[in-house]
């Protein structure tokens, strides 16, 4: 019998947490119903899943938890439309469906022995959190060089994973730089847009990779900075979010040129994207 890639795994919503002050982002903790189910879902940082609210539909979300956090999956979801709104309103204890893991992942093998600069803007910090958490696992931390994280949001209330960020601040294994767009009382981090802050921090491109996720404008203006710092296109990694349905390269909607973001991505290097049309 071939595996049916359309069937979701039922999971239990154990936590529906309001992540941001504007209440538009919730983080969902989903628990596997059995060990067998969990075994059937081996994932890596950067992959995504189709989360389904039965009766409403499915939508693709990056997996925010990391493989070294067993037993559950986490997704941070912005309220934008039918499925995301239904998720936001779901009660803890409800059953949701998860189809995946889908897509490729960050090149964790290629990154071994390298320094890494993670740059995230807004709520596009989900799979970046997964990656940082994965690399900071004590059994693995030694495999990687310096880990710098530059993370920004419009204001402090919009940063995701605040408790975790606070813990990272104290952790010598990671160099965390947070920034907000405009100064507010009680903020100790930096103030300024990501491109400018990246330029100030000026992470070395020597033996380094940059991974960048965020709104299109942020990416557009950070690219030249990374180029100036000496990151070649092969060592700048991005993750695309084209509209999706099937997640398995069949329904035809997520293509960028001949590549399907769902099946061949979502993770691409800048060099790969330079070869493709700008349809994302």
């Amino acid at each position: 019998m071939m595996k049916n890639p359309y069937l979701p795994l039922p999971m239990k919503l154990v936590k529906n947490f309001t992540e941001t002050e504007d209440k538009l982002i919730h983080t969902f903790t989903l628990q596997f119903l059995s060990e067998e189910d969990e075994k059937s879902f081996p994932y890596m940082p950067g992959q995504f899943a189709e989360v389904c609210v039965f009766g409403k539909g499915e939508a693709p979300f990056g997996i925010a938890s990391s493989p070294n956090e067993p037993g559950f999956l986490k997704f941070s979801v912005a309220k934008v439309g039918v499925v995301s709104t239904a998720l936001h309103m779901m009660e803890e204890g409800s059953t949701v469906g998860v189809r995946g893991p889908l897509g490729n992942y960050y090149p964790v093998e290629e990154l071994k022995g390298k320094n890494l600069v993670i740059i995230g803007g807004g709520f596009a910090f989900t799979t970046l959190r997964s990656l940082a958490t994965y690399m900071m696992d004590p059994v693995r931390r030694g495999d990687y060089g310096n880990l710098t994280v530059i993370y920004g949001a419009r204001n402090p209330g919009l940063l995701l994973y605040k408790e975790e960020l606070a813990a990272w601040e104290q952790n010598p294994d990671i160099n965390l730089i947070t920034t907000i767009d405009r100064a507010v009382d009680g903020w100790n981090g930096r103030v300024g847009f990501i491109p400018a802050v990246t330029e100030e921090v000026a992470p070395s491109s020597e033996n380094s990779y940059a991974i960048i996720c965020g709104p299109p404008v942020m990416i557009k203006f950070t690219m030249p900075v990374l180029e100036k710092l000496g990151f070649p296109p092969e060592r700048i990694i991005m993750s695309l979010e084209n509209r999706m349905k099937c997640g398995i390269g069949m329904c035809g909607r997520c293509n960028v040129g001949g590549k399907y973001v769902c099946k061949d991505g979502p993770v691409f290097t800048r060099a790969q994207l330079n070869e493709l049309p700008n349809e994302y």
């Binding site: 039965f54 009766g55 539909g57 499915e58 349905k245 099937c246 069949m250 329904c251 035809g252 909607r253």
Partner: peptide
């Protein structure tokens, strides 16, 4: 041509 959409058709918890 093979493009498709996936939608739910449901009443309450059954669909």
């Amino acid at each position: 041509c093979h493009c498709f959409d996936i939608v739910d058709d449901a009443v309450d918890c059954n669909g």
